[in-house]
């Protein structure tokens, strides 16, 4: 079944200017999100996950810039639009859920006001209808007695409730694409579980695509249809959740899986990936993972040439010289 694409990122390159020098933060990133699909973008801090979301939202900080590639949301290339046109896409077509629910709501305005404002902007309804709809959306995200919540200020709500309010706000604009930047990191595990199942349910209800940023592989396992693994601004592996989890090919992905504590096994060992994550200013020739990769010595190409994406099985792509060699 071919579903409609809501987000199609192709060959995205982005740079950050630091002290008058430009450093590449995203290198040839491509992936797509279909309706009713959750794509998880996984990687360590600094690998470019958040920058990717900011590129899509058009909210890169002033010193960042997309140099080439295209970001198509519902068939429109955002990189070709003016800032004001991109603004019209935000909220309406794509909504973003933030990592820190504690700081993502204006502390001096009531929940009701903030919801209403958003509804009036995107759904063009009057105040009364907006209030009614706000109650509906709060109910939808599982908030008990929404009427009284509307009159409260953010500080009167717990983290989980605030995240729900934020989700309600994003949903109320009926976006086709939901971007969630580690929405569960700041929540405790039980609330995390609730929020994840809420997102999963809403995805089906709204027939929206979700781009989910996380470094928590447990969350990935729970929610992802497709997984994109980033390392130092490059895509190293992409595939369906089953493919990536059951049969990780890239040494980095394999390392990530090993670094997750497994409570089911008797030996409780975490195997870390050796070495340090490279700094943005560091230049690494060849595969960016080669200084930390166990197989670099066996393969002379790793330090010389950047590996190309290779389809190892339908829908499962890996960028690694070793995998390529083994396949041949």
């Amino acid at each position: 079944m071919e579903r409609e694409k809501v987000l199609d990122v192709k060959n995205l390159y982005a740079v950050f200017k630091i002290q008058k020098k430009e450093y590449e933060v995203l290198h040839d990133i491509s992936f797509d999100v279909h309706r009713n699909e959750t794509v998880c973008i996984v990687g360590e801090s600094g690998c470019g996950k958040s920058v990717t979301t900011l590129c899509v939202m058009g909210l890169l900080p002033k010193n960042g810039r997309v140099i080439s590639g295209s970001i198509e949301v519902d068939g429109t290339d955002l990189t070709k639009l003016s800032a004001n046109e991109v603004r019209k896409f935000r909220g309406k077509k794509m909504g973003m859920i933030f990592q820190e629910p504690m700081t993502a709501l204006n502390p001096l305005l009531t929940i009701g006001y903030q919801l209403r404002e958003n509804l009036m902007l995107h759904r063009l309804v009057d105040k009364k209808t907006a209030d009614k709809m706000a109650v509906e959306y709060l109910t939808k995200v599982g908030i008990a007695n929404p009427e009284s919540r509307l009159k409260q200020y953010p500080f009167q709500l717990s983290g989980g409730l605030r995240q729900r309010v934020l989700i309600a706000m994003v949903l109320s604009a009926q976006p086709d694409l939901l971007i969630a930047d580690e929405p569960t990191t700041a929540l405790d595990v039980t609330i995390q579980k609730q929020v994840l199942s809420l997102l999963n349910g809403l995805k089906k209800d709204m027939n929206a695509g979700i781009m989910f940023i996380t470094h928590d592989l447990g969350v990935v396992a729970e929610i992802a249809d497709k997984v994109v693994v980033l390392y130092a601004g490059r895509k190293v592996e992409e595939g369906s959740a089953q493919q990536v989890f059951n049969d990780p090919r890239h040494p980095y992905t394999v390392g990530l899986m090993k670094a997750v504590p497994n409570v089911d096994k008797d030996e409780f060992v975490i195997e870390p990936i050796p070495g340090m994550f490279p700094n943005i200013t560091e230049e690494i020739p060849g595969c960016r993972f080669n200084p930390r990769c166990a197989y670099t010595k066996q393969c002379p190409l790793c330090t010389k040439e950047a590996p190309e994406m290779l389809e190892v099985e339908p829908g499962h792509f890996v960028a690694c010289h070793l995998v390529k060699e083994n396949a041949q």
Binding site: K88, R90, L121
Partner: peptide, 22 residues
């Protein structure tokens, strides 16, 4: 610098509205 400003931006609010209200 606050995150709620980014959050409001991400919901599509205009600069004028962000300044004048939030």
């Amino acid at each position: 610098q606050e995150e709620y400003i980014t959050a409001i931006q991400s919901l599509g609010a205009t600069n004028f509205w962000i300044i004048a209200k939030h």
